[in-house]
Amino acid sequence: MSEHRCDITLTVNGETVAETVDARKTLVDFLRDDLILTGSHVGCEHGVCGACTVRVDGDVVRGCLMLAAQCNGARVETIEGVSDGGEIADLQTAFEQRNALQCGFCTPGMLLTAQELLASGQVPSREKIREQISGNYCRCTGYHAIVDAIESVAQARAGHKP
């Protein structure tokens, strides 16, 4: 059975959502247009810039390279939910203190991508941090401050004194 319109039921930031979507609608467009969760951004729509980064079943993915229709039964988390839940409060504070964002358009994706690395509990090298965020484009900062912020959180979480 194939459809141009698909019924999907999923959880988004812990809430159960049941919607009917166009088969062609990407996950990020679904979140933005249908659920008005506009914290996930559309920067290129071909999987390069990383502004649309969200978590699906615990993994960060490109929101423009998944279809909403594929998310039936999935657990989707966006920057709104991850912020409200407090999971990355320390990372957000570090970004603020270090001015690791300017226009902020890349920031939700950058934070979620960084959190995936930090969740390992290791203290990664600056090179490893740069590698982890290598798929998240930031035109404003030059990346240095972002690397500083992520590094400081890794150290703090590992119990190192700043």
Binding site: T38, S40, I79, N99, L101, C103, G104, T107
Partner: peptide, 23 residues
């Protein structure tokens, strides 16, 4: 003084309003 910008929290929480968000 290097005081933090007052508008960063909304940008970091996905609560900004870019024109592409306007409906």
């Amino acid at each position: 003084r290097s005081v933090p910008r007052p508008n960063m929290a909304r940008l970091m929480q996905g609560r900004a309003q870019y024109v592409s968000d306007v409906v």
